[in-house]
């Protein structure tokens, strides 16, 4: 199947009611209804889109299976009049009593849906205001998956703060990185916006430029117990230009048409990814790196 040359993307920047899974699904459905008439190919929602982010022990009450979440998301899309499209959203996953902060990529048809990929957040922030690993298990795999629009990867929030995540995804072939996120804002001394918003944009612009990828960042918004999620969803092209960015504190929809040919053109003029792929094995096999060297070491990690 030939890959599409363009990708029409919408981000639904959710401001969920804490813990109200069904009500938030209805809210997302209202946003989907706005999109249905001029349907995007891909709709992206933030991390923890249907529950809110800071759940503590309530995560065990609200986590669902990936299959149930995909079904609920697809049903909301279809009930809103949506036809064939791909949907991405973050959710808390219950897999046989193991709990993860996950994101799902679902391909939705008028009468069926198919999970294309589930990514379980690997880097669980557990410091300061964050306590994810107190309640959740880590994902252990960074998958790159095929879509009708080329290979993509999902990185949930802190996953994307580590430069190596975007690097490995790109080396494995990802051309679009999707980052569902929930980032509590801080830093009031900076110019124009909170420092943490600038930090996210800087981090992902650099990833886009270095690897020649599109990055789609979907930020949760709304205050949770005094901690304000910074929203500011954005899409950055392979040369690092911000195509569109949402405000920080309002629920909204942003959308853009991505010219996927821009990836090849960017890589032709700045072929850093090819350069990296050539040398990366040497870098990763460096015996000075603190990496496991055998099965026993890997188990110990």
């Amino acid at each position: 199947m030939a890959e599409a040359a363009a990708l029409r993307v919408a981000i639904v920047q959710m401001k969920p009611d804490k813990g109200q899974y069904r009500a938030n699904l209805r809210t997302s459905g209202e946003a989907f209804a706005q999109l249905a008439a001029d349907s995007p190919n891909l709709v992206v929602l933030p991390e923890a889109a249907m529950t809110g982010y800071f759940l503590e022990g309530a995560v065990y009450e609200l986590a669902v299976t990936a299959q149930d979440f995909a079904r609920d998301l697809a049903a909301a899309w279809r009930e809103a009049g949506g036809r064939t499209a791909d949907l991405v959203a973050g959710f808390f996953e219950n897999d046989d009593g193991n709990y993860y902060n996950s994101a799902v990529y679902v391909h939705v048809e008028p009468r069926s849906e198919r999970i294309v990929h589930v990514h379980r957040k690997m880097f669980l922030p557990t410091y300061g205001v964050f306590d994810e690993e107190r309640f959740l298990s880590r994902g252990r795999h960074l998958g790159v998956f095929e879509t009708a629009f080329g290979k993509m990867a999902l990185l949930v929030c802190e996953d994307a703060c580590h430069a190596i995540s975007a690097t490995l995804a790109a080396v494995k072939g990802a051309r679009v990185l999707i980052v569902p996120s929930a980032s509590p804002g801080r830093g009031i001394e900076a110019e124009g916006e909170l420092a943490s918003i600038t930090q996210w944009r800087d981090t992902l612009r650099l990833a886009a430029i270095e690897h020649g990828v599109f990055v789609i960042y979907a930020g949760l918004t709304g205050f949770e117990g005094g901690k304000g999620m910074t929203g500011s969803s954005f899409i950055v092209d392979p040369r690092g230009s911000i195509l569109v960015q949402a405000p920080a504190t309002e629920a909204c929809i942003i959308r853009a048409d991505l010219d996927l040919g821009a990836i090849d053109r960017a890589r032709a003029t700045l072929p850093l990814l090819g350069d990296l792929a050539a040398v990366l094995p040497n870098l990763l096999l460096d015996p000075e790196l603190p990496l496991p060297r055998g099965a026993r070491d890997a188990t110990d990690c």
């Binding site: 401001k15 124009g192 920080a248």
Partner: peptide
């Protein structure tokens, strides 16, 4: 220091979310 404009907007949003929405 403080960026007063950013902070004022942020805190107004906080008050609206906390009192009106939640």
């Amino acid at each position: 220091g403080l960026n007063a404009a950013v902070t004022a907007d942020w805190l107004a949003a906080f008050l609206r979310d906390e009192l009106v929405l939640r």
